[in-house]
Design a protein around this nucleic acid. Structure first.
Length: 119
RNA sequence: UAAGUAGAAUAAAUGAUCGCGGCUGCACAGACGAAAGGGUGCAGACGAGGAAAGUCCGGGCUCCACAGGGCAGGAUGCCGGAUAACAUCCGGUGGAGGCGACUCCAAGGCCAGUGCAACAGAAAUAAUACCGCCCCGGCGAUUGUAACGCGAUAUGCUCGGAGGAUUGCAAAGCAAUCCUCUGGAGUUUUGCGAAGCAAUACUCCGGGGUAAGGGUGGAAUGGCAGUGUAAGAGACUACCGCCGUCACGGUAACGGGACGGGCUGUGUAAACCCCAUCCGGAGCAAGACCAAAUAGAGAGCAAUGACCGGCCCGGUCCGCUUUCAGGUAGGUCGCUGGAGGGUCCCGGCAACGGGACUCCUAGAUAGAUGAUCAUUCACGACAUAACCCGGCUUAUCGUUCUGCUUACCAG
RNA sequence: GCUGGAAUAGCGCAGUCGGUAGCGCAACUGAUUCGUAAUCAGUAGGUCGAGGGUUCGAGUCCCUUUUCCAGCU
C-alpha cells in the first residue's frame, strides 16, 4: 500500500484502545488515534470467537482490500484498528466495504472534498 | 436392473483488471541502520489440504543429562512379518456378526497372590439345607381292631326284687309251684366314648442323609442320558466339554488325533498385580550466530573533582576513551531436495524392499491466495502450512471409476 | 505453535476403593406475625458436557469429541 503500513505491536494496539475514539456498527468496531507520523497504520483484529482460521483470515483480507481500494481518500497520520464482530463472519465484500466507509465518515477522517461530494 | 460390500481418484472451471508473498533476472539509488542487515522499480515462472484440523501415538533434528546395573513411573499385549519407529500396516490363528461378498475384536495370565461381587438369595467360597426328596425317633391325627365305661334294649331266656294266690309244715315263719308287676343284674342286639395294638400317601417336633429338582442372581460346584440308591451324588458308564501327557502337521499362534485324569467353583486384570517386550528429559518460542541498550571486569586518559585523613603515600567513587565478557530490542541462520513424487523391471501371497529412468512443486514471521466483472454448470462441503516426515482419530457438498456378493429378469 | 486443568440441581461446591448422587444458598408449600423479614416443619428439582466401550452394574475405569480456563512470547 502506498501511504500505509500495518500496526504490529501489542503495545500499539493497547495505546489505540485506551486513547483513541471508537465507533461501531453491525459488523465492525473502529478505533482511531492520531499518531503524528504522516502515514496511516492499519490494524485488524479478529478474536477466536468470530470463527475458525479460515473465517478470520477472510475477514482480514476483506478489510485490507476495502481499505486499499479507498486509500487515497483517507486523511494521513492516523492509527486505525478494525475489530470484527461475530456477525461479520458470514457477510461478503460489499457489506464490509460499506461498513468501513460508514464508520470512517462518523470519525470524519475522510478528506473533506470527497466527503462533500459523496454526501 | 436393484440392493449391498471392499477399494481408488477428484475436491467447480475459464478469461480480464487491481492487489499480496518469497524466488530468479535486469535496472536504480547508495538516500535507512551503530552494526548485522536491508531498499525501490520492471519482467518471469511459482504460491495450502485430503484432512493443512485435533495434538492422540511414533521417528528424524536440536539442546540438556548420562560409567554400568537396578528401582519407581509409563506404554504395548494371540502368532509371524514389514518398518527409522509406532498404539500403524500386511499375512495368518481363534472368537463374534452376516444368506453372501465381507466386517468387527485392548484377543497374555484370576491353575502365583491380594481385593471386590450392592440388592436378592439358604448359601457368593468355606462352607451351607429355605422349600423339596429319603431314613430313624417322638407327640398327635386318621383308619382298622378293641379290653373297658356309659346309655338304650322289641320278642324271649336266666337270676333277682315286690305283691297276690294255692299247697305243705301246728303256727310265726319257711319252702315249693303258679299268676301279676318290676329293666335291678346278666345274655343278645345296638348307640356313644375309649386305654392298648396295627397300618398310613397325614400334621408337627428332634436327629441324620442328600446338591437330582424349585426359587434368587450377571454368576450356584461341568452338560445330557443311563446304571445305581432309602433318597441321591462323576459313586459308576457312554457321548460332549475341561485338564494333563504323547506323537503328528505348522516358523508360530494353533489344528485335528490317541491315551489318561474323573473334574479341583464363577465373574472381574479398561481392580491391584504377575509375565514378556519397549521407553532418559524438553521441544524450532528447540538451538546457533551477529549485536544497540542495561548491569559487570580489565587497561588507559585527566592528574582534576568528592570522600577517608592534620598532611603525604594509599584506597574508594564519579567522568571520558578503549578492550573483554554478556546477551535485551533488532537482525541472520535453522527453513525446506526429502525415510520425496511418478513410470517401468526384479524379489515377496502382501505390507514392503532393491534397481533404472525421470520430476522439483510454498517457506511467511502480526504472518502472503483476496476483490470486482463476464460466461458455464452439478450452484460449490469440511476447512488455511508455521521445522519435517510416518500413522491414528475426527469433520465433510458432491462426482467418477474398479473388483466382488445376493436377488430378479433376459439371452 | 506448544503445555496443563475443569465441566455434577437455578448458583457455589462435595462425592476415597465402581453398588440406586449429597451439602449450603435460592425456589415452592405450611406454621408463626396485623403484615414482612428472621425462625420452624416439609416438598420438588439431576439422563453427573456429549458419544462409544469394559463390567452383572460407570459420576468414578478406558477411548473419541465439544466447550471453557490457565501458562509459555
Amino acid at each position: 500500500m502506498l501511504f500505509s503500513e500495518s500496526l504490529k505491536k501489542n503495545t500499539d494496539f493497547r495505546n489505540v484502545y485506551e486513547n483513541g475514539r471508537s465507533y461501531a456498527d453491525k459488523y465492525l468496531v473502529m478505533y482511531v488515534l492520531e499518531n503524528n507520523k504522516g502515514i496511516n497504520r492499519l490494524g485488524i483484529s479478529a478474536s477466536k470467537k468470530v470463527g475458525n482460521s479460515v473465517v478470520r483470515h477472510r475477514f482480514a483480507r476483506l478489510v485490507r482490500e476495502s481499505y486499499r481500494l479507498h486509500e487515497n481518500i483517507f486523511n494521513s497520520g492516523l492509527d486505525i484498528v478494525v475489530v470484527a464482530r461475530k456477525s461479520a463472519a458470514s457477510v461478503g465484500f460489499f457489506e464490509i466495504e460499506s461498513a468501513l466507509l460508514h464508520l470512517s465518515k462518523l470519525h470524519r477522517i475522510i478528506k473533506i472534498y470527497f466527503y462533500d461530494e459523496e454526501s
